[in-house]
Design a binder for these strands. Structure first.
Lengths: 243, 243
DNA sequence: ACAAAAGTGTTATCAGTACACCCATGC
DNA sequence: GCATGGGTGTACTGATAACACTTTTGT
């Protein structure tokens, strides 16, 4: 067993897209502590994170944290920023919590985000009381985790415009409208459906399947898939100066 | 005096643009060590970096490192990635160096890059033997610093297309051709001068001055400046999906 | 007068934007 | 048969890309 590095952690912003509710969510765990007299001292939410081990890469640590929380491996992950302000863990509740858990108050954290589907996580039997919260209605958060989530979201907003990571949030087979909904959820904007379709359908790596989604009700919709292979082959860098 | 955090450092990729040679450079310091028998053990180059202090933010550490190296403050800086592989400091020379300098082999580093002009740095009287090297002709580098520089450059390439950081590399008054040269140096591409001029001159935050650069020789060229104020006022986010 | 870098205009093509109605199914 | 979400086409506008010659100065 390898040794923990006491003052370095990895925190994971687990983004999960809910295709039915059309919301982008974050997976949070409960932080709860009461005094001996049963007085509630801390009752809020935090990201999952854990200390790095001596023999791990940062990516390893992030993957390990995700696996412990959700059981999932191989999900899209992105390191996006390190947080190391001396006062990042010095809130009143944070100090109580740290005392209880006995970890180093001067910890810097390397933050990652993951992209997956809410459905992929078995939220029922979860020892951490993990729950999904819409990014637009975050609950009370401990430490500097609200800031971390917001910066993760900012990074995601930028990246989803230039890289096909949106498909990490969708099942293999999806409709054009579902893709549009993801963009709208992430960016908090409305898009014109006709123009959006045109654009998507013209991409050679968006492939129409011989299949329709006769899902819930109404008119069945055409299913598509994303071909990463074709994307990588066809895609060349664009040097468009866009200030 | 505050305490060093032994296993966390900040490394700085100092990019300096040489407006005369039209090259993007990195500022490197010498790493030199010889044995008692005068045998050269280590003779290569590294980025400047230093351990974080207990009471500093990461940004503080980066600014401090830059100031110690160059005397400069207030330069554009950007945290872009943390490097924490267990083997990042385990090269043969690296281990000799670490033994000599007595620092922790299991150090993770938060990497920043800075943007400035080579002219701003007084390279002559510099206690670190700092020198500029073109990013396209890097010398032998210690640790994982070549990788760090390359990832910094990748980040810069992306950012300079969507944010007006290019002007950090130029003097206050510049010509359109100088701006074009910066882009070409960073991106390693050629741009059409007529189209580029048109685009730049149309930007309302690129302001023609009542002044010409009668600099070296030949036809004097029109000088311009960049107005950050106007940029910030006029600019609104573009949500162009560009996969 | 010549070398060297600055500066200039037009056209064709493509992509983005705005916009309103019919279609296929489940109930 | 009607409510619901799926799906479609056109015209306008603005930006990009390709392309070659004239201008102004210093020497």
């Amino acid at each position: 067993m390898s040794k923990k590095i006491q003052n370095i952690s990895v925190d994971c912003v687990v983004f999960g897209y809910d295709i039915k509710l059309k919301t982008l969510n974050v997976l949070l765990i409960k932080r709860y502590l009461e005094s001996k007299k049963k007085k509630v001292l801390v009752d809020d939410n935090v990201l999952t994170g854990y200390h790095m081990y001596e023999d791990e890469t940062l990516d390893d640590t992030a993957s390990r944290v995700l696996k412990e929380l959700t059981g999932l491996t191989g999900q899209y992950k992105q390191q996006f920023k390190a947080f190391g302000n001396p006062d990042r863990l010095t809130g009143k509740k944070d100090m109580l919590w740290i005392k209880n858990e006995q970890f180093n108050q001067r910890t810097i954290t390397i933050a990652y985000y993951f992209l997956l589907k809410t459905d992929d996580v078995d939220i029922q039997n979860n020892q951490h009381q993990a729950k999904w919260y819409s990014v637009s209605q975050l609950p009370q958060l401990g430490f500097d985790h609200e800031q971390i989530i917001m910066e993760a979201l900012d990074d995601l907003k930028v990246k989803c415009l230039s890289e096909p990571i949106i498909f990490e949030l969708l099942p293999n087979k999806f409709t054009i409208n579902e893709v549009q909904d993801v963009y709208q959820s992430i960016l908090s904007i409305e898009l014109d459906n006709r123009n959006f379709r045109k654009k998507m359908i013209n991409k050679k790596y968006i492939i129409a399947l011989d299949e329709k989604k006769t899902g819930v009700s109404k008119k069945p919709s055409q299913l598509y898939m994303f071909s990463k292979d074709i994307y990588l082959k066809l895609h060349r860098k664009t040097y468009l100066i866009n200030l």
